[in-house]
Amino acid sequence: MASPPLPWLKPAVLVGGLSPLALLLVQGLQGELGANVIEVVLNQTGLLTLVFLLASLACTPLKLLFAWTWPMRLRKLLGLMAFAYAVLHFLTYAVVDQGLALGRIFQDVTERGFIAVGFLALMLLVPLAVTSTNASVRRLGFPAWQRLHRLVYVAAVLGVVHFVWRVKKDLTEPLIFGAILALLLGIRAVEAVRKRRRVRSSPRPA
């Protein structure tokens, strides 16, 4: 049976995905973000980037494991929201935290591993966001588009490394993100191996 149309699915995810941002704004305006508002905004936007990046990477495994098709319709939206939060995260750092002091930002990005890794992850997401339209898929051709979008695996790994590296002492939270990412990539790896076996063992024309 075909999956139901679920017309509310995308709007619901969009509203749900933007609500943490709205909450952050409301709390900020009401002075409820504590003594160091910029630090809270940096941490929250960074965390939300990783949450949506992992959510977008969970769509394919959900299809593989449970034969659900509806998550695939959300993949692009989730990926774009991850990108939006990543851009907000970077702008909070560059504009608000550093006051656009370009020399200092350049020094951070080039000399500090943890910032370099985060910046590289953001740079990898840019071409993916730019080619997220259906027109781009047609223009590039699906195989090439798919190859390009595998960069998201690298970006997600770099994002988790950025988080692990930043933490002062307690690694619990970044390691949870790392474990989920490893699981999501692991399911893909298993599937890739199975597919290759299937191709090899299938009868070939003489």
């Binding site: 500090r112 591993g113 930043r166």
Partner: peptide, 13 residues
């Protein structure tokens, strides 16, 4: 600090 600059600081508030 190996991971960040100590050249500047944010005074709370």
């Amino acid at each position: 600090h190996p991971r960040w600059s100590q050249a500047t600081e944010r005074r709370i508030g």
